[in-house]
Amino acid sequence: MADLLVPKLNNNDTDYVLTEWLVKDGDPVLAGDPVVVLETSKAAEEVEADTAGTLRHIATVGSRCRPGQAIAQVGDGSAPSLPVPRVPGTDTQSGSGGPVVTRPAQARIDELGITAEQIASLGVPVVRLADVEALRPVPGASAADAAVPDAASDARSAQGTPLAGVQLGVARAVELSHRTIPAAYTVVRMDLGPALTRARELTRTVRRPVGLAELFVQHVAALHGDFPRFFAAVDGTTATLADAPHIGVTVDLGEGLYVPCIRDAADRTIGEIATQLMKYRLAATTGAFREADLTGANFVVTLHTDADVVLAVPFILPGTVCALAVTSPQDGAPANIGLAYDHRLINGRDAALFLRALKNSVEGLN
């Protein structure tokens, strides 16, 4: 009988919540079948069976599960050899006999002031982050509709507002970055006029929104062959080079930072990049990211679209060595495009050469 072990899904969370069994206890499965859903601070991820056989649950819905922990066994149909653990009481429920509420969902409930009655009205056994987002108060709602959230907000102001699950994940990543990565920063000025003109033309051609995000993903990825160390990872005194550029792009809706990844970006057309980013922006509004969407980046492009932002210094995502900050042009003036880089691997001259190559590529658009 083989154990089904919890995989390592990200570097920000030490444990995950088992939110749903996709296969009933005692039912047969094949290798590769999705059998269980685990939720992290940012996403829900389906875990597949490694072998074929009869699935026997060990962990229950609502359990906190650590990487490497056995949550089920797949074998000949006999009972599992490990005891079934109780659901920890620290995982919030809506009351006796009520639905299980995952930690990311509970953090969002607290933030929005969602009531127990609203949660019960969902009629689901497990309340996930996406379910709570559906209960978000609608702008312009009546005073009666907003009364309870406003009262809850006043109470939280007096007691302190807890960070949402997504923001907790950001906090852990920032703390790790600042503690472990000796970062440096270099800025160049770029004339983004040609790029914006080209973006408008491409939007009409590919019938997808094309902007600076899409163009910088494409142009950064094209530099992978000439600047492989900028897409590497540092482990102690060793740098591991990447076979292909996988570009992370920040998506920040004001309630937490997501960094979904465009894999094999150098092999994608601008239309494919635009389509993928459009899907990611939609996922950010609904909390529908998969963990696979948010992992694997070896270079990060951070976007700062507010016209008043003239300079931004991003943190370097753990596991990468570079983060490019893209700001908007100011009334036709050049924009400040900055590169934060891990000084253990990349020096100032290297950064300047990379930014010059990027500048020539972006400004050369016609």
Score class of each variant (00 low, 15 high):
Asp3Ala: 13
Leu4Tyr: 07
Val6Lys: 02
Asn10His: 01
Thr14Arg: 07
Asp15Met: 14
Glu20Arg: 15
Glu20Tyr: 05
Glu20Asp: 13
Gly26Leu: 10
Pro28His: 01
Leu30Arg: 14
Ser41Leu: 15
Glu46Ala: 15
Asp50Ser: 11
Thr51Leu: 13
Thr54His: 10
Leu55Val: 07
Arg56Tyr: 12
Ile58Thr: 02
Ala59Met: 14
Val61His: 02
Arg64Pro: 10
Ile71Cys: 02
Gly89Asp: 13
Pro104Gln: 09
Leu112Val: 04
Gly113Pro: 10
Ala120Val: 00
Pro125Val: 09
Val126Pro: 03
Ser142His: 03
Ala143Lys: 09
Ala152Phe: 11
Ser153Gly: 09
Pro162Asp: 00
Leu163Pro: 00
Gln167Glu: 13
Leu168Phe: 00
Val170Leu: 10
Arg172Ser: 02
His178Arg: 15
Arg179Lys: 13
Ala183Val: 13
Tyr185Glu: 03
Thr186Leu: 11
Asp191Pro: 06
Asp191Lys: 02
Leu192Met: 08
Leu196Cys: 05
Arg198Tyr: 15
Ala199Ser: 10
Arg204Trp: 08
Arg204Ser: 15
Pro209Ile: 11
Val217Met: 01
His219Asp: 12
Leu223Lys: 05
Arg229Tyr: 11
Arg229Asn: 05
Phe230Val: 03
His246Thr: 11
Val259Asp: 06
Ile262Glu: 04
Arg263Pro: 07
Ala266Phe: 08
Gly271Tyr: 11
Tyr280Glu: 03
Arg290Ala: 12
Val309Met: 08
Leu311Trp: 08
Val313His: 11
Ala323Val: 00
Pro329Met: 00
Asp331Phe: 10
Gly348Asn: 07
Leu365Met: 14
